[in-house]
Design a protein around this nucleic acid. Sequence first.
RNA 1: GCGGGCGUAGCCGAAUUGGCAUAGGCGCCGGACUUAGGCUCCGGUGGGCGCAAGCCCGAUGUGGGUUCGAGUCCCACCGCCCGCACCA
Length: 912
Amino acid sequence: MARYDHQKIEQKWQAYWESHGTFHAPNPGDPGFDPSRPKVYVLDMFPYPSGEGLHVGHPIGYIGSDIFARYHRMRGYNVLHPMGFDAFGLPAEQYAVETGIHPRVTTERNVATYMRQLRSIGLSYDWDRRIMTTDPNYYRWTQWIFLRLFDSWFDAEVGKARPIADLVAEFEAGRPTAAGEPWSSLDEVARQSVIDGHRLAYVDEITVNWCPALGTVLANEEVTKDGRSERGDHPVFRRPLRQWMLRITAYADRLIEDLDVLEWPESVKAMQRNWIGRSEGASIRFRIEGSDAFVEVFTTRPDTIFGATYMVIAPEHPLVSSLIPPTWPGGTEDAWTGGHSAPMKAVDAYRAETARRSEVERRTENREKTGVFTGVFCENPVTGGRIPLFMADYVLVGYGTGAIMAVPGEDERDWEFAEQFELPIVRTVEPPAGFDGKAYVGEGRAINSGFLDGLGIVAAKRVIIDWLVARGLGEATVSYKLRDWLFSRQRYWGEPIPILHGPNGELRALSDDELPLLLPEVENYRPASMDDDNADPVAMLSNAPDEWKQVDIDGVRYRRELNTMPQWAGSCWYYLRFADPGNDTRLVGEDAERYWMGEHGVDLYVGGVEHAVLHLLYARFWHKVLFDLGHVSTPEPFGRLFNQGYILADAFQDDRGVYVPAEKVELRDGVYLYEGNEVTRTAGRMGKSKKNSITPDEFVADHGADTLRVYEMFMGPLDSSKPWTTRDVIGVDRFLQRLWRSFVEPDSGELLVSHDPANDGLRRLLHRTIKAVTDDMTALRFNTAVARLFELNNALVGLERVPREVAEAFVRMLAPMAPHIADELWERLGHEPSVAYAPWPEYDPELAREDTVTMVVQVNGKVRDRIEVEVGISEAEARSVALGSERVRAFLSGEPDKVILRLPGLVNVVVR
RNA sequence: GCGGGCGUAGCCGAAUUGGCAUAGGCGCCGGACUUAGGCUCCGGUGGGCGCAAGCCCGAUGUGGGUUCGAGUCCCACCGCCCGCACCA
């Protein structure tokens, strides 16, 4: 064999691993399970199997986690390293709309491609644990968890979820209902409605994001800031609709607090905190003039209430029309009316205008403020002043109470509005001298604020809240940006929601043993709404046969829920199922859950930062519910999270902006040419649409899986995005070829390993390398680990034979990154296959240390000499070496001199 | 605007605690082997002087600060990336 033949060797070892079940991880209680070993759970964010297959940018995180998993196997851990597929979702369904092919068929075809590609790069998954969210044996448990959410309520007193039965028992024991009526006085329907109002999964009529093109409503999280669908970039409209909701807001505080102990990137923690958006403040009730009714506002600055010169409600605010006067009251300025003859007309017109205006426009910053006076005056509770109530779309209905007290002196938005509508501005916080801005939002003492004058912001807040509480006008409250999770979708390819609707609208959950509720077959996948923006939402399952849609129980006819779950559902708990994928009596066996999820849950979770908020927040929420109900043993699912960076690649566009195949573009004299025409280079993620993808199939055929793995790790830090540079691949190819030649005689295939011990220099390098690579492995610094192995390999060049101690350690260090070539060499070194469970090499701390180190000698502040000294030299010796140096002596003045020895770990000041 | 992060050679990048800045790779230059070629081998690669050992000088976005000593810590500024954004 003249060269290292990657095709032959990689196929050989992949076949070996599969036929020997090398990476199968037994569960507690299974044959071969060793309970004395520590466990590590290494998880990738499982993919949605798209029809395009993988390109080389996709597996970079998988390779990183695979190296981590392989390293821990060699360290003697029981390693859970599974893979599966998040296979419900829109693309397969949209493909079905076009082709009529059942989503199950396309999904299975795509999964087969993914598995072939993943296997071809030597990832050490335990494929026996493979799961698919679309498998009835899987979604049975997704539905089961939904039923637990339906059957639970959040007990705010203990801050955790409890079974509904507990709530019923408490009501029967005298717990007051929210409406204040005693439980015993309620009839069955009223009781049911009280209970339904407490469930973690509940139905509510809310304003939803309706996307006709996708034929479904979307969660806020799935709508871009331009008011379009994240998937497909279709227009989204606001519609009121009765929908399933999950009460994630109940967990807002715990979702924030529990972030602290997680070993997650700070940026992701920050994004989650930001998304939940907790702010402390006060709700304050402002009496409506001439009425007993109040407008309740939320503010984070109750201390500024003396400066509240007007109020604003959102256009969607449910202010009762009867409170709006028939004519413009005295004190109405012309600028406030919008030219309308009566308040109701002005309000109706403004509401209509807002509804027409897209979300995009509404959310655009720096848009000129619009609004209209409602004809209602309120009373400022502290000043007694008469202040107008406006309607304006800069106040959002979804946050706080949908109403604000406006303090233009201390808030930039309010200032802008006040200027436009000629409303009075009163400063209530003293700006620093020389402040010439408009609204002042900084620290300062209260002014123009009656009994608050002179107080700082914090103290003023405390005093005013006490004052309001004493008068029943307000209280301290906390507000969140986080909304409850809209959980219904009108699409076909998702988990059916296991609920029945009774003749009187009552909800009836399926029992656990009626699960799974199978997805029915339908004739047509095309949503009725698809081409009509004005169409109403219709659930796809209304196309199901009547036998499925109707259920008769005890003579009562029930209708099945026709909505399905969103794609996030399956990925909310898949990490639990991997611990015990075959269990058909529980979602996960207790022993398996406690063992694999023990201590920190998933020990390393690797995936893209695009899931920083949605998937990771939803999964944490479900996990906490399951934790509260006693189904899992840890409060958090993912102890350590790592976001791999993306592989970027140049893409090229011609003069019409059309992408041209990147591999056919040539660089000549600083100009990029495609078929002789100049094209423009752009950077970005790899993707089929940009015609710059490289598939693992072609790469593995040309260079091999080991080169792909090592190259992707060597490109740079795993968590930063970096460009794919085909030119650089050759360095890794050379490394592996050179390595092979160091070990194997090219012509005879003889093993070039000697029994002679390594010389001191090589041995020191070896032990330094082991130390560095070992540190790199746990820190996921694989780029530097590769560089260390390059360096060690370079030291072997020119040796006739590699000393065995070096060879053995080298192969073992190489194994996680380049497992095929490492297994081959390991076998040739005379070991049983495979190196996957060979012990990781240990280093000798003495040998790993540098043997000499440079001592820098400064005389009176200037470096005068650098002297190589042995590591571990004593202070006295170092001093005598330094003072013995002629160069140093030449600069001694005879006066007391300051001589400083600089030595790693030793600062030694000598005065002479 | 708020939050998170980053600026090191021609390019990708390294530098555990503040301690020889620039490891490793690409590219480039020179040489060897070869009829030829390069997924071969050897050497060089911040600038200057030197045949050489070596010597001198400069440099981690900019400007300050702390320190015997700063890529690393502190302050200000400049530039870039990511997330959120009329959230009261």
